[in-house]
Write a protein that binds this DNA or RNA. Structure first.
Lengths: 320, 320
DNA sequence: CTGTTAGCGCGTTCAT
DNA sequence: ATGAACGCGCTAACAG
């Protein structure tokens, strides 16, 4: 049944016939037990993350890319949702799953989780760098510093100086990739000798309603000439707010989004955006995990630079 | 370790200490093998379906609802993607997975798949009715006839008679739920003594680009006063087309969507839509499957009626 | 309450 | 080229 080359075609034929007539189905569980390989990869996500799925185009794109790649490699994905954002609880959940390895989409991974996984000998990868320890190499990051830089530089070139950078905030602190984007933003300001002010950064929770309200508050108190928005849901909320209040994009305010280009192309107006190659990074992530699991060779690569897609939501600033 | 009530607290304490000091982790695979229960539910999806994930709000909502419900019941979801649309291949994929049961999101299930699963004793449920055999009871449907009816009736009450019903077409044929919606549509026409014409039905593939182009063709040849659109992607494509060509909603054309209310609330204009309770039906679906797996009692219920959410994309027709 | 043991269904090895 | 036997790590049943 397992295509062994030691079996005569005739014998195989007879076996297969018996299988068919008896309706025999091999016990997959016993196979997994015996071989120690389930060909399942665990995808660890917080339940909160799943709840924000609608309109979170970045997650959708990553989910799709991971599923397709995993399928092509002969694996399946097990969705492992953890209610608790506490990272130690992640380990409890992870070790209780049947999987050959784990992809951890964690906004808040930490070093104790890493060491627990390492000690237990469980193969894992993270979708972003979360620690400063140079020995932590099991992640595929994107070049977020460059992303923040290129968006800001483009706006500065268009004569915008009154910019607001809207970033998602989880439990009062910035996600690591947002810290990077922010640093890129600051670097661009610095190059153009524009002083960075704290008020340029606007922290916003990722949900639609709250985003809408906070955009409202922002524009009540001060109307910037340009906006960079670090997550898709808030970008949609902002567009809706502008639509509802007759604020024209880009005439009254320029707007740059971050995320999958396809998503922004289907908005109106078409949005200028910083686009990351999520398919690429997802593929690399799975390759990295399979390397740990099956010793598959992987050529290490630098994070791919994001791309600035210029469309219809940005224009030159003429305000003083 | 398994919280047996037969063990003295003191002994348990000692065991737990040993576990900790040795770093012992139970072999989940062996547990699954021995007990025959993995607490995994397989979610069977075609790869094409996954590819259309972005903007497919109905799928996102169902995925989220299923994941949350499953998690609450102490199970995890295994994503099983099948490349082939051929249903016999589904069985091959399904029987090769470690799972206690399967949720099949198939647009094209058939009766041979059912009988294969039945014979093999594999617990399964479908997310929609796909056959006319009254013995096939393992599905949770929604009341799509009513959905089509209430949308059409609402438009007819608003004096619209020149209506187009845009429905997704897969491989040249309508999905079963679209057949139902269409029948509801016809029933409403009949009640108002409006003659049904074939041209009222416009078949469209679900993707964004094609939808956009077909909407364009439709409006080039004939401009109806109202549109009912059976899938979300096409709805977004239509809104984008109207935006790009200065067609006002609802002044120039009324529009009714089908799908999760939340999705349509975040569009501009806010869309009148027929809303199904996907959380409810997903919960019921998981309950039904768990009933088959663990003999859990389930009270059978009628499909829940959809709700017509009236918002800003529909108005009275004044054209003759 | 605690310690011992059979056996789940495979893949693998070894003898024929 | 084929058949027989072993054992993976755990749970459950049973003896003590």
């Amino acid at each position: 049944m397992n295509d062994s080359s030691l079996v005569k075609p005739h014998t195989r034929q007879r076996v297969l016939e018996a299988v068919k007539s008896l309706g025999y189905i091999p016990n997959k569980t016993a196979q997994v037990f015996k071989t120690g390989r389930s060909r399942i990869l665990g995808l660890v996500i917080s339940t909160q993350h799943i709840s924000e799925l609608v309109y979170n185009a970045g997650f959708q794109a990553r989910f799709k890319a991971l599923t397709v790649k995993t399928h092509n490699e002969g694996y399946n994905i097990l969705i492992i949702s953890s209610t608790d954002a506490n990272c130690d609880s992640y380990f409890e959940v992870i070790k209780n799953q049947v999987a050959d390895g784990f992809i951890i989409l964690s906004p808040s991974a930490n070093e104790s989780l890493t060491s627990l996984l390492e000690e237990a000998g469980i193969p894992y990868v993270f979708n972003m760098k979360y620690s400063t320890n140079p020995e932590d190499i099991y992640y595929v990051s994107s070049d977020d510093i460059e992303g923040g830089y290129m968006a800001a530089k483009y706006l500065l070139d268009l004569n915008h100086t009154d910019i607001r950078f809207i970033v998602g905030v989880v439990k009062g602190s910035l996600m690591p990739f947002n810290v990077d984007r922010l640093n890129g933003f600051k670097r661009a300001l610095n190059e153009y000798s524009i002083e960075f002010k704290e008020e340029m950064i606007v922290g916003i929770p990722g949900q639609m309603e709250e985003s809408y309200n906070l955009i409202h508050q922002l524009f009540q108190s001060h109307w910037p000439t340009a906006l960079m928005i670090s997550n898709e849901t808030t970008t949609v909320a902002a567009l809706n707010y502008f639509h509802d209040h007759g604020i024209r994009v880009p005439q009254d305010v320029s707007l740059i989004g971050f995320g999958p280009s396809e998503f922004f192309r289907n908005l109106r107006p078409n949005l200028t955006n910083v686009s990351y190659d999520i398919t690429w990074s997802s593929d690399k992530l799975v390759d990295l995990l399979l390397q740990r699991i099956e010793g598959k060779m992987v050529t290490p690569e630098w994070p791919k630079k994001p791309e600035l897609i210029i469309r219809d939501s940005t224009m030159r600033n003429f305000r003083p």
